[in-house]
């Protein structure tokens, strides 16, 4: 098990401050989803949690230790990362991509141990990609490609997985396919999943724990039912809405109101 947290985190680009004295604790073994409107800092926060950005002040802790004090390879044993819109090198097959996930576990001497082989086979099976393993990544559909990237993280075999908008630019059916897969990885293998989603209703449906950001700080957190109440959604997104119960998943469902409907 592994857990990330942030303490008094200040971070930005050039002189522009994005995260401001942010405090964050995430539950282990759950699916946590970061939500908020564009520019609220949710992707920046995820990058900071993945040690891609160094804080101006404050710190990000992995299992209680400052993540920037840990060797990057050591971090890669505990935490895997799927950035937004990753690009596979030209001509690379699914299998070759997934094999890269074993990098942190390999040494110069041992570059393809039986365990490496086993973990890659398992990752391909887990993500249902065995039949596509020798296809070139660029030729896959959006949903298949995203599953291949998730398989890379599965092969890396870390207790904690961070994903930045894993469903953006996917059709609805592929969005569900990806989120169902992540849900299985969480429920069946106990992996802690932290992701950014911009679709609030999908977030509400799959999150155990929801963190809403506003102006670089945590505005609300808790179960989707605790966070997704109309007043809070209005404060987070600046959007009037009604919230009803999803008849299938019994999670909150936000119905945005148009300007006409409001008057």
């Amino acid at each position: 098990m592994a857990t990330v947290s942030a303490h008094a985190l200040m971070l930005g680009y050039q002189r522009r401050r994005i995260l401001d004295q942010l405090e964050l604790d995430l539950p282990e073994g759950k699916i946590s989803v970061l939500v908020g409107s564009n520019g609220c800092g949710k992707s920046t926060l995820l990058k900071a949690l993945a040690r891609l950005l160094s804080p101006w002040s404050g710190q990000v802790c992995l299992d209680g230790t400052d993540i920037h004090q840990l060797p990057t390879r050591e971090v890669a044993h505990r935490l895997s990362l799927l950035p937004q819109q990753p690009v596979a090198p030209e001509g690379m097959t699914v299998r070759q991509l997934v094999q890269l996930g074993r990098h942190p576990h390999q040494r110069w001497l041992s570059q393809w141990s039986p365990d490496d082989e086993h973990q890659v086979a398992r990752a391909l099976e887990r993500t249902g990609l065995e039949a596509l393993a020798d296809q070139v990544v660029d030729t896959l559909s959006g949903g298949q490609r995203q599953r291949a990237w998730i398989a890379l993280a599965v092969a890396q075999n870390t207790p904690l997985m961070l994903l930045d908008e894993p469903t953006s630019f996917l059709d609805m059916n592929h969005q569900m396919e990806v989120l169902d897969l992540l849900h299985e990885l969480n429920r069946e293998e106990g992996r802690t999943i932290v992701m950014v989603l911009h679709d609030l209703n999908l977030a509400g449906r799959y999150a155990d724990h929801m963190v809403a950001l506003r102006a670089g700080q945590v505005y609300a957190r808790g179960t989707p039912a605790q966070v997704m109440i109309p007043e809070r959604i209005e404060a987070i997104f600046g959007l009037a809405c009604r919230v009803i119960e999803d008849p299938c998943s019994h999670t909150p469902l936000c119905i945005p109101l148009s300007r006409q409907a409001r008057s």
Binding site: A50, L52, T72, R73, V75, H77, P104, Q156
Partner: peptide
């Protein structure tokens, strides 16, 4: 980002 994620 990917390379860093893999511990490079």
């Amino acid at each position: 980002a990917l390379a860093t994620g893999l511990g490079l």
